[in-house]
Design a binder for these strands. Structure first.
Lengths: 187, 187
DNA sequence: ACGAAGCTTCAGAAATTTCTGAAAATACAG
DNA sequence: CTGTATTTTCAGAAATTTCTGAAGCTTCGT
């Protein structure tokens, strides 16, 4: 398992981006290697390809499995575990978005709802209103996401490829605007 | 500048979520305080409210300004800088998405395109194909995002509120599917 | 039951990120 | 120009995250 220069380049990029994506470098690199690898690989292949410790690979694979981003395979007659990435890219996209939503949105939504339940005194009137606005916004966006997420991949791809048609449709369909412009004076 | 319990709760949550959102704790807290504060605040207000160092606040504000998430204000006769958050929530959402795209997507897209330009030897045939798939996917999604982003806020809100109408429209409109199912054997 | 192959765990080492305090820059009034 | 109010910078301290090596599992063949 030696990577070509081309592969190296790809893999190192994923490692560097890792921190921006909220994953550890090795996790990103591990995923990258599996992603561009035609065959399933075992842990030792990854150790060799990336030059990191066995335990690091073990933990990285565990994390990737928890995210459903890699799948465990078994080769007949082989004792070790082999790993691949799902080959359907759209499945990967769905997983990534779902996972980010779970970690980055849902806890906040829960907290906002909890705050909304409380009886705010006069002191908190403004804060309470702001929390309400934010909650509504996030709720709107997540239900839109849920809508899209219910589309089968075929139709989702069709929608995404649709380009300006969507804009035209919205423009003609959404004529009546239930528009509430809140003015919140500041400073 | 003492925060009420209600406000504290909100602010601390934003601080904790900070790490998941790829921002430092103080940056998250600083934003949160400004977000729920009716009036513009100065740096010292924030120091007092959060109990962190002045320099930390200075750096956090700088970062938030770089992201266009807070705005500088001046009070007449006052010498210090005062800060607020934009009160249009949708502006905030647009900024956040744009900024994340810039940091998390664009560099990867650039790298993928660069890799696509190279002449891959036989060794890299599979990797090259995978890179191509990924690039196409990301390009498709970013142009879809660009579409949505061109909508004025009114229409965007209308679209988001449209619920199942969108799904119906896609289902009827996108009958002819230019479907290419790639089978990539593994393992 | 024993040993070899392979996987996981975890304490602490290494690396990275965040935060502070002191010093330096900037802006302004008199 | 001098002194004061304010913001910025930055070296290193503190905190956090990531990674390693050693030890300990688990599984399987003999």
């Amino acid at each position: 398992m030696t990577l070509t220069d081309y592969e190296q380049d790809f893999v190192l990029h994923f490692g560097e981006m890792g921190s921006r994506w909220g994953i550890a470098r090795t996790v990103g690199q591990t995923y990258a290697v599996l992603f561009i690898s035609e065959d399933a690989l075992c842990a030792d292949d990854l150790v060799e390809a990336l030059g990191v410790s066995r335990s690091n690979i073990s933990m990285s694979l565990k994390e990737l499995q928890a995210w459903s981003l890699v799948q465990l395979r078994h080769k007949p007659g082989e004792r070790r575990d082999y790993f691949t990435t799902p080959d359907d890219m759209w499945a990967i996209v769905r997983i990534l978005i779902e996972e980010r939503k779970k970690r980055e949105i849902d806890p906040t939504l829960t907290k906002l709802r909890e705050l909304q339940m409380r009886e705010p005194g006069d002191e908190n009137a403004y804060a309470h209103a702001r929390v309400g606005e934010l909650r509504e916004l996030i709720e709107g966006m997540t239900s839109f996401y849920d809508e899209l997420n219910q589309l089968e991949t075929e139709r989702l791809v069709a929608l995404i490829k649709m380009g300006s048609k969507l804009r035209k449709w919205v423009t003609t369909t959404a004529k009546v605007l239930p528009l509430k412009t809140k003015t919140t004076p500041k400073g």
